[in-house]
């Protein structure tokens, strides 16, 4: 394997891992507050279709990404209204959000399938991008990848050193205790769900505006579910989410590696790899029941009703 190939694989690994990283970070914040939102796919697809249409109509990528995030937030608040407002089952409602979002996005986007669009350009940082092997991977990416680096750093700090981060964790661990000392449990949860929605929408926009600049039905291809598994894999820790996202990015582009090494394997079989990897990772992380329970936010998925 020559140097160029390694450089390109690392570059593609970051690009492929970025949407997973963004979704998983958003979902992690949501889960830290005690809410399990299985509707990631629905929010991603709505973000992807909204961003694509807005960019196509206005010509502005900035507005596209903005609308992608807005679409994610709106979808997430639909989920929040039903689970937090009406105390409905979070698992079933999350599934409903996925089914609804998949249908609605396909409906809205039906007229836009296959239309060409000028995708997001890469920003090459001079000098730094010339560093061998890692230069291209870290310093010749598009704006959203740089944004995801910033997002990671911000969340790392948020949960490690900020007071608000502590509140989110308290609400997720024990909402009754948090409520008793006057923390705004419900508001925190609504905001955490909204943040998760914004991130899923952003990742959706990344898919339809940068990663593969086009709209296709169901283009998220299970990334939302993989990101959910990633959060489990990461034991709800920010730095492990980063690691996991890029590992999954690598698993998704193994066909490039195989080609580079001169193997010929059916692309359909290789397409299974990220999903197989997800199952393996879940098995690895869940084996020890008491250990996996220790890391999960205590009240994850449980409804909170004042006075209950």
């Amino acid at each position: 394997m020559d140097m160029d190939l390694i450089t390109n694989i690392l570059y593609a690994m970051i690009r492929t891992g970025t949407p997973l990283l963004i979704i998983a970070l958003g979902e992690m914040v949501c889960e830290k507050s005690g809410v399990l939102n299985l509707g990631q796919e629905g929010m991603i697809l709505m973000g992807a279709v909204a961003g694509f249409i807005v960019t196509l109509l206005t010509g502005s990528l900035f507005f596209g990404f903005l609308m992608a995030m807005a679409a994610g937030v709106i979808m997430s608040q639909l989920f929040a209204m039903i689970t937090l407002g009406l105390n409905a089952n979070q698992v079933a409602t999350g599934l409903a959000l996925t089914i609804f979002g998949t249908g609605l996005s396909a409906f809205i986007g039906a007229d836009f399938v296959g239309q060409p669009i000028q995708g997001l350009d890469v920003i090459v940082i001079p000098l730094l991008s010339d560093i061998p092997v890692i230069g291209k991977m870290l310093f010749a990416q598009d704006a959203i990848v740089y944004l995801s680096f910033g997002l990671f750093t911000a969340l790392y700090w948020f949960f490690r050193s900020s007071r608000t981060g502590l509140i989110v964790k308290a609400v997720g661990e024990n909402p009754h205790a948090a409520n008793a000392i006057g923390l705004p449990v419900m508001r925190t949860r609504y905001l955490a769900v909204a943040f998760g929605g914004a991130m899923a929408g952003l990742a959706g926009g990344y898919l339809s505006l940068a990663y593969t600049p086009m709209w296709a039905e169901n283009m998220s291809a299970g990334r939302g579910w993989i990101a959910l598994a990633l959060v489990v894999f990461a034991s709800w820790r920010t730095e492990r989410v980063l690691l996991g996202a890029y590992l999954f990015g690598l698993a998704s582009i193994l066909h490039l590696v195989a080609q580079g090494l001169g193997f010929s394997v059916s692309p359909n079989l290789l397409a299974m790899l990220p999903y197989v990897a997800t199952v393996l990772v879940l098995v690895m992380m869940s084996r020890n029941q008491s250990r996996s329970k220790m890391f999960a936010p205590m009240s994850l998925g449980k409804p909170f009703h004042v006075g209950s």
Binding site: A88, N89, L97, T102, L104
Partner: peptide, 22 residues
């Protein structure tokens, strides 16, 4: 209409059901 209208109705139905189940 796009065929996706099927998925749209399915999603709405489940959403409303969960909301009504409260």
């Amino acid at each position: 209409m796009p065929l996706a209208i099927t998925g749209l109705f399915q999603g709405m139905l489940l959403f409303y059901l969960l909301a009504c189940d409260v």
